[in-house]
C-alpha cells in the first residue's frame, strides 16, 4: 500500500517538474519578443533608464515615427508583391512539372526529376555570387523581375519534389479514362490534377510564403533602390541604422514581425506540417 502511495507522489512530483521545464522553455521562447513589444512603447530616454520594466507612460509616438520614416506601407506592399507572385508561379510550375513527371511516361524523366531532387540540397548561399554576376549581365540588376525569377527558380526543386510525389498517388485510371474520352492534357491538368492536388499545394504555398517573406540575403544583393526593397531589407536598413534611437528601432522591429506572427497564428497547423514535410527532405 505504502509503495503505491509513494509511487503516486513521486509521479505527481515528476509531472510538476515536467510542467516547470516546459513553462521554462515557453518563457524563454517568448520573453525576448515580449520584452521587445513592451520596450517599443517607451521613449528612448525612458528605455535608457528603465530597460527591463514596464513603461511608466505608454507612448505610441515610436510607431507613428517608424511607420512613416521607415516607409513601411511601401515595404509591406513590395513584400506582398514578391511573395504573392513567387508563390503563385511556383505552385503553377511545380504542379505542371509534377503532372508531367508523374503521369506521362517519358525517358527523360529520371534525369530531369533527379536533377530537381539534387537541387533540394543545394544551398542558396553557394550560388549568391554567380547569381549576382548573371543577373547583372542579363540586365536585371535592381529590377523586380531580377528578384522574382531567382525566387521562383529557387523554390522549384522543393515544389516539384513534393508535387510529383503527391500526384503519383492520384490513380492513373482517372487520367487514362479522361484521355479515352478525348480530354486534352491541358484540360486534364486543370480539371483533375489541380483540384486533387490542393493538400500538397497548401504545403508548398506555406513553405514558399514563409521562405520568400523572410528572405533577406538575395534581395539585399540584387537590388539597390529603396523602392524595390522588401520588409526584411527595409527593417535592416532602417532599424539597423538606429543604433541609439531604441524607441523607433523597437517599433520598427515590431512592425516587421507582426505580419509573419499573424500568418503563423492563423496557419500554425499547416505551417508545422509543411515544415516537417519540407525539412526532412531538404
Amino acid at each position: 500500500m505504502n509503495d503505491i502511495k509513494d509511487h503516486n507522489t513521486r509521479s505527481r512530483l515528476g509531472s510538476v517538474g515536467i510542467y516547470l521545464v516546459m513553462i521554462f522553455f515557453t518563457v524563454m521562447a517568448l520573453y525576448p519578443l515580449f520584452w521587445l513589444m513592451v520596450s517599443s512603447f517607451k521613449t528612448t530616454t525612458e528605455f535608457q533608464m528603465n530597460k527591463l520594466g514596464f513603461p511608466k507612460k505608454w507612448v505610441t509616438i515610436n510607431y507613428k515615427d517608424a511607420w512613416v520614416r521607415g516607409k513601411f506601407p511601401m515595404l509591406i506592399v513590395n513584400s506582398v508583391i514578391y511573395t504573392g507572385i513567387t508563390t503563385l508561379a511556383i505552385l503553377v510550375f511545380s504542379a505542371m512539372a509534377g503532372f508531367g513527371f508523374a503521369k506521362i511516361r517519358h525517358k527523360a524523366t529520371p534525369i530531369l526529376y533527379g536533377s530537381f531532387v539534387i537541387g533540394i540540397l543545394l544551398t542558396l548561399q553557394s550560388i549568391m555570387v554567380p547569381l549576382f554576376l548573371i543577373v547583372n549581365w542579363v540586365g536585371l540588376y535592381n529590377t523586380r523581375l531580377g528578384v522574382l525569377i531567382p525566387y521562383i527558380g529557387i523554390g522549384m526543386p522543393m515544389g516539384v519534389y513534393l508535387g510529383t510525389e503527391y500526384i503519383k498517388s492520384i490513380p492513373d485510371a482517372l487520367v487514362e479514362s479522361a484521355r479515352i474520352d478525348g480530354a486534352t492534357y491541358g484540360r486534364i491538368f486543370w480539371r483533375i490534377i489541380v483540384p486533387m492536388s490542393i493538400p500538397v499545394a497548401v504545403t508548398v504555398a506555406i513553405l514558399t510564403v514563409t521562405g520568400t517573406w523572410n528572405e533577406f540575403m538575395l534581395i539585399n544583393i540584387l537590388t539597390s533602390s529603396d523602392g524595390l526593397k522588401s520588409l526584411p531589407v527595409g527593417v535592416q536598413k532602417f532599424a539597423g541604422a538606429l543604433s541609439t534611437d531604441y524607441g523607433k528601432q523597437f517599433a520598427a522591429l515590431v512592425i516587421g514581425l507582426i505580419p509573419m506572427l499573424l500568418f503563423y497564428l492563423a496557419f500554425r497547423k499547416e505551417i508545422t506540417k509543411g515544415v516537417a514535410a519540407g525539412a526532412v527532405k531538404g
Partner: peptide
C-alpha cells in the same frame, strides 16, 4: 516554442 522560428531572421538579429 516554435514561434521564434517563423519570425524574420532580420528582426530577430537586431532584437
Amino acid at each position: 516554442i516554435y514561434l521564434p522560428t517563423v519570425i524574420s531572421t532580420v528582426v530577430i538579429g537586431i532584437l
